[in-house]
Design a protein around this nucleic acid. Structure first.
Lengths: 135, 135
DNA sequence: CGGCATCCCGACAGATACTG
DNA sequence: CAGTATCTGTCGGGATGCCG
């Protein structure tokens, strides 16, 4: 059963899931690193080759892109296609499973966009209070 | 506006959001660390005191719990209440904003639960292929 | 009880150089 | 073009000990 194919879980199931901790731990260890979700998001519109991927993700090094796509491939979230040409061409594309992760990435992006102002404001309030307390 | 209260964004908006990269980067830097989402998930049923929180999250050190709740408090995701008693009692509770993050945590947990088997299988396939290629 | 300060180490990320 | 190899620095995070 996939999360996209069915309603998945009841609220209680969800609580059980996060309550365990291991599930969240697992997925965080997997996609919580610095680049994974960005690579997934970058592949949202279809296949891209290595250099295109790197151009679309500012700041990522060749090494980290290699490691990230390698892990994504291993986990079955991204497919890797090597074309026997000169110069060589390698293309990456989200699998169906990777597409479900993309949904999460989008949800995360939405949340960030929607709530960043409030968080920023909360920080300023907190820091101001801390400064007042210290000073 | 929260991500749970309204559809928020069109698909295109979502793509723009993740496409930027900074939004995902921001939220990942914030909640992508080792413990944040676990703490949020643990507070799903209401307020807990420090020691209770620590008991419910296997493996977390006192130091990391302190740092995590401090940051959550600073970001306005968790409220911290100090009771003037002996022995001292400090309670933590999700704010309304923190509640919206809980929804994401649940979604992440759901995804993990639903897809862990497939990922595990993909890994075994990949590793087997790699081993065959090497050996 | 709750939390801060200090020390320390392993993991991971960046830069650079080399290869098929 | 698409990697791999190595070296190096940074930093998250654990252990320990002390304070309100």
């Amino acid at each position: 059963m996939t999360s996209s194919a069915a309603p998945i879980t009841t609220y209680e199931d969800s609580c059980a899931a996060v309550g365990d901790g291991r599930a969240v731990r697992e997925v965080l260890d997997r996609v919580g690193d610095k680049w994974t979700l960005l690579v997934v998001a970058t592949l949202r519109n279809g296949r891209l080759r290595f250099s295109e991927l790197q151009r679309h993700i500012p700041g990522i090094s060749q090494r980290m892109l290699t490691l990230t796509v390698r892990q994504l491939e291993r986990d079955g979230l991204v497919s890797r296609t090597v074309h026997a040409e000169v110069p060589p061409r390698v293309e990456y594309e989200l699998t169906e499973l990777g597409g479900t992760l993309l949904q999460l990435s989008i949800a995360l992006g939405d949340w960030a966009i929607a709530n960043q102002p409030r968080i920023e404001q909360a920080r300023q309030v907190y820091d101001a209070a801390a400064a007042a307390k210290a000073g």
